[in-house]
Design a protein around this nucleic acid. Structure first.
Lengths: 221, 221
DNA sequence: GATGATTTGTACGTATGTATA
DNA sequence: ATATACATACGTACAAATCAT
């Protein structure tokens, strides 16, 4: 039972699916998105596809040139670095505010999460750590107690997922990443938001460094 | 002559028009947007209107509930304060980076602009000062030399235009605003990005304070 | 709570603009 | 360079859901 025909809008389903495929890299940058092809793939008409593409163009995942169709946005290395820097600064901003505003419960939840992540590092569980990492940062966004800021931070961060994905697998980043989280939390514990912010920024730039050539390669590919 | 039929997309024209009307307050928060009505108003069919509305919903200006049409987003006072705080923090972040990165030319352009604004304050030219103010802040965004960050900052700031519009007209804000700009620029001149950032944040919060009850009233109305 | 009116969601047709041989 | 093929932009039609009574 419970076989009710999907209640959500077709255009929304298509948009979500495309978002995932772009963020995960299944749909590579530069791929052209023919409306009819996409429509066929989802068993829909072109109308909801067009609406989905229009929305994706606003979030910047798709580039739409009038009368010439859309392509998955191809980012230049410069642009990626700009986005990465913005993410780093925004994260720093969030953690600084979060330091002053998080509840004891939120603080303890963060510490618990961090403690639990040790096991993932030992086990070299990359996917597990990736999931933890996402939770860690999203918890910090929410701890700002500023819903709008949290949304913005998350939206910006999501757009870099495709580049962040493989990052932790390289070098000893996973262990270093966890250590840096620890430093951030220590500053948070001391109530020093500025320090927490600086450490978060450093953490983000370390991650960017680890990406290194990968970013340039992916962008040019 | 020059009667060539508009080259731009109808959906884009509609979107831009609606954006302006929402940002300027002509279309008040809570106004419901009937697709057919909007289409009639622009002499178009529902198709481009729908595409425009979908895009506006992504930028957050319109709330679209499946099968129930769209309304101009009605912001709660809390949400407006969140947005305002985010803007303030983002501006602080931008000016800090800009301090370290702006070229001598950009610095001189900013100082010139600031100097010229004195006349506007004396003349109590509110509209003129409003335009100057916009330029001043946008110049700072660009001086970060981070295109992505500048875009984000501008997008967030624009969404508050409708609330900022009347703000400068009240109290002695226009003179105070210019003085605060001066303090920011002084810190920039000294190359102290952190100080410039703190002063910018203070500047933004002073503006928010001036908004005061107005925000709550506008949001509730 | 049921029924009719209204409005949205999706499909489809056609004209126009863009790419290509 | 011109013509042909093709994809997009917009309008229209109809089904389905929401709402008003």
């Amino acid at each position: 039972m419970d076989d009710q025909p999907d209640r959500t809008l077709l255009s929304d389903r298509i948009r979500n699916a495309l978002t995932d495929e772009i963020a995960s890299g299944q749909l590579a940058a530069g791929t052209s998105l023919d409306e009819q092809q996409v429509a066929d793939r989802f068993g829909a008409s072109r109308t909801p596809v067009r609406e989905a593409l229009r929305q994706l163009s606003v979030s910047g995942l798709v580039e739409l040139r009038p009368r010439r169709g859309g392509v998955v946005t191809r980012l230049t290395p410069d642009r990626i670095m700009d986005m990465f820097e913005t993410t780093a600064e925004v994260e720093a901003m969030c953690v600084r505010l979060a330091t002053y505003r998080m509840t004891p419960l939120e603080r303890s939840r963060l510490n618990d999460l961090h403690a639990a992540s040790a096991r993932l590092v030992e086990a070299r569980d990359f996917d597990g750590y990736d999931a933890f990492n996402r939770m860690f940062h999203e918890l910090l966004y929410r701890a700002t107690h500023n819903g709008f800021m949290a949304e913005q931070a998350l939206a910006i961060r999501s757009r870099l997922d495709v580049y962040r994905r493989t990052q932790l697998r390289h070098g000893g980043r996973i262990a270093a990443s966890r250590d840096e989280h620890g430093l951030v939390l220590a500053a948070v514990a001391e109530g020093d938001g500025d320090l927490a912010g600086r450490r978060m920024r450093a953490h983000m730039f370390n991650a960017a460094g680890a990406l290194g050539r990968y970013i340039a390669d992916a962008a040019l590919g």
